[in-house]
Amino acid sequence: MAIPGLHLTQIGSDDFLLEPTRNLNIRAQDVLLESITARLQQAGAARLYYDLSEQPLIDPVYYGWLDALARTIQAINVRMVCIHMQPTAAFALSKFMLEVPVFETALDISGWQKTGQ
């Protein structure tokens, strides 16, 4: 079943790609978290790639959403990797981020780097 505001696609045996659309309503965070987690759990996912290529800016509200999603899926043993973060978003996020984020980051799906060193 489609989740409003995002595309969640299985891209490997246990990898998923989440592509948010412009309609993503992060105010309805609880519903979204439950739907995404249920879908990942059902498929036995191990990793979720969150595509940030269409997100030019990450403010504390959006960071809160990413943080909540990463923590929630961590509870079912799924790692979240944010990919394609834009320079402007990284710049803005680094200005207010006080600790290492729960999610990992990579240039793209084939990226090798982990943030939580």
């Binding site: 944010c82 978003a89 980051t105």
Partner: peptide, 12 residues
């Protein structure tokens, strides 16, 4: 902050 931003972009 610069190091954090670099890491956030997925680079080391």
């Amino acid at each position: 902050q610069m190091v954090q931003a670099v890491q956030l972009m997925g680079s080391d």
